[in-house]
Amino acid sequence: MDRIPILKLGRALLVTVQVDMHDRLAMALEEDLSAKIVTTGARGVLIDISGLEIVDSFMGRMLDTIAAVSRLLDADTVVVGMRPAVAITLVELGLSLNGVKTALDVDRGMALITGDYGHASEGSEDLEDSDDRGEG
């Protein structure tokens, strides 16, 4: 059976969820992640869902479960890159994913986990600067 690859990035694990995940795949991911958190001693889990066109209650539940399990294993879970249409739909559906942290992109999600959030910009800054020099 296919499995979703889990990458180790420093002290975090990165999972990139692709379009239209099968239910079995989602369940396998739950198991794989918890095992890998323990073996790698990861401090956090980044789940990049920027490729997902929908998140239904099944996927939402999976994210919640992963977050809850990770918390027990002393790792933070950050869901990254949710699309606006998906977010609007999820709210309408009644899911708030209160247990998970969120970030706009992988960089910022990583900053949340490693805790150096907001320290990137020092000295003067002005709006003419290129946008990639934010904090994160």
């Binding site: 929908i54 239904d56 209650s57 249409a85 998906v86 739909t89 999820l90 559906l93």
Partner: peptide, 14 residues
């Protein structure tokens, strides 16, 4: 529109 698409697809999935 994109939001309407997402809503109906999500409802269908449920």
């Amino acid at each position: 529109g994109l939001v309407d698409q997402t809503k109906i697809v999500t409802a269908a999935s449920e």
